[in-house]
Design a protein around this nucleic acid. Structure first.
Lengths: 337, 337
DNA sequence: TCGCGTTATGTAAGCGTTTACATTTCTATT
DNA sequence: AATAGAAATGTAAACGCTTACATAACGCGA
């Protein structure tokens, strides 16, 4: 049976209030009694019960993190960074993997809210749906605790967004290709999420601004959750149907790796005959040969900003509802410009 | 201000005990009042306060998960699977990323224990050190709650281990190569963990049993935390020093990918001139061309068994202290046997 | 030595549940 | 119609902590 504050107070010959005071630091306690209590706590390895504390304080100092799939490379990295940031700010985190279904997301949100977390972080743009109905759970949740969005944006009271400007990053990358003289660019995407749409719109922007005729014909939508092999095959298929392209812009690094694989199989040389750009600048970039050029969305910066905003919100400060950063292109071997 | 069980009881014109009873299901409540209460709970979206519940029950129904780095592909997958398993058993999980330092591990363990989690899962063999001192924190922790080890083994009361028999899997893979006539096998490893040692010893077993002379000269230790590019370069260096090999056995998939990269760069053809086998059968296997042959350590099975054992332990049953599974080789394009 | 203002410590209520035990309300049997 | 026994519901204590408020101890000047 673990020790309680009451046991400690007895051993130290003081009241529980005094023990509580030295535990929490703030109030005035005589130096000698403080030392005595601290020694006893040390000796018996007493640790206060967090649930009891949460009841009194009405806060667990714990943040709920919701994430569709923590085994996804990008999301895993984000979760990791968030945890580091939270820990260094004295907060714990409760992680919940929801899958991609909106009903499940709602259920898990309620589950985690019942733990009385102080706030909720939703990791990834897949938490934003395309219908009012799909997003209602965010509205409901935000009535109870602040909701922080990583890599997505949603304008609603008590909802704070931190994200990379995917649209303009993509525009930037496309225009870089165009400047290098590559005008037949295959745009490859699969997910249908908020940020995926942003990226696609950024691509449109670039192509329209540069008046590339018929560019829409080179937009390839890969089945979601298909394997790298399947995507590579889909690209080969697409080419076999008569489309030609000398650049591939992929909405994430996995897709880009599939593109590189397609090139390997078809014997197209990278970057001479074909340039490839991925998105996220994840560790996957170093897995292919040559190494993958990719757009870095500065996850470290985003997570840091998100937690900073969160801490501010929790301490009652007025904080920006939306923090937008811009990404940048990290050039490696799959491009030669 | 969130609703409490008291608010609900008032609205339903019953006592809090009755509400609690319908919440917990077990006790007898008249069908009509049950429905009335359920309706009200539904209407007002009431969710019980988990901290309060934890106080009464002396259990949070929460499991602490400690993991060095949740952005590592293998660990991330393990954590994900564990969470799924725990959730389907009605447990929440509190994840804490500790880094690889033992002092930090100890600190985080204490932190998470103060949350009064019901048990602790340590993910990955890096939680086992090579000295008594390094492992003392596990002994201390196990005095408070059951400790479950994934992919590591430690014989101590209240510590339960679930793992893949890495040594024999590796022996198996090596002998498969030998049977295919490849006798000059480069063994590539980097980490220094418990399971890494097991794998190496499995390799020794195979080579000794088959009386391969001088095989030790082909064991290459790559600097930990070096990039794929650096490891590929290290292999090239090694070869330049006069070593020849026609098979590479890597202690994890990342190393194997580096091996494939080395082959690409040096123009050695896989699998005709060089066979490569990785370990973990992670999603990385599909990233290379050709796809990577790899040893599957059955993470799904391991995590399932671990949680099953855990649930048993928590409900007071006698459970096996150690569950050992064997891995198997999944053959893909980097081998032709 | 007295009394006053600090400073240190103690007392007890409250946080939202669960549950043993007590009480009330039914049902069925006589 | 009375009553035993079962079924449904209520009462109140307990879980381990924080903290407002009450009280005690101390130091200091007159």
């Amino acid at each position: 049976m673990p020790l309680t504050i009451y046991d400690i107070s007895k051993k130290a010959n003081v009241s529980i209030a005094t023990v509580s005071r030295v535990l929490n630091g703030s109030d005035s306690v005589k130096e000698s009694t403080k030392k005595k209590i601290l020694d006893i706590i040390e000796e018996y390895e007493y640790t206060p019960n967090a649930s009891a504390r949460a009841m009194s304080l009405r806060s667990l100092r714990t943040i709920g993190i919701l994430c569709a799939d923590s085994s996804d490379v990008f999301l895993a990295k984000a979760v990791y960074l968030l945890q580091q940031e939270l820990q260094s700010n004295g907060y714990e985190s409760l992680l919940c993997c929801t899958g991609y279904n909106f009903d499940k997301k709602k259920n898990y949100m309620n589950l985690i809210l019942s733990k009385k977390v102080d706030a909720l972080i939703l990791v990834g743009s897949n938490f934003i749906g395309s219908t009012e109905e799909e997003n209602s759970y965010i509205r409901d949740g935000s009535a109870k605790v602040p909701i922080m969005l990583l890599n997505a944006s949603f304008d609603y009271p008590n909802v704070y967004s931190t994200l990379c400007d995917d649209a303009s990053s993509m525009t930037e990358a496309a225009e870089e290709m165009l400047r290098a003289g590559i005008r037949d660019i295959l745009y490859l995407y699969s997910a249908d999420s908020y940020s995926s749409k942003k990226k696609l719109s950024g691509f449109h922007t670039a192509m329209k601004r540069n008046e590339i005729p018929g560019y829409e014909d080179l937009i390839l939508h890969a089945e979601e959750s298909s394997s790298v092999e399947e995507i590579a095959a889909a690209i080969a298929d697409f080419e076999a149907k008569g489309h030609t392209f000398h650049g591939i812009l992929a909405a994430d690094d996995t897709l880009a790796i599939a593109a590189v694989k397609y090139a390997h199989k078809k014997g197209r040389s990278i970057p001479d005959d074909l340039s490839v750009i991925g998105y996220n600048n994840s560790m996957l970039t170093e897995f292919c040969t040559p190494e993958l050029t990719s757009i870095d969305s500065h996850l470290e910066t985003l997570t840091h900003q998100l937690v900073t905003t969160l801490i501010g919100v929790l301490s009652g400060q007025e904080m920006p509802k939306k923090s937008l950063f811009s990404g940048n292109l990290v050039k490696r071997g799959t491009t030669n410009f």
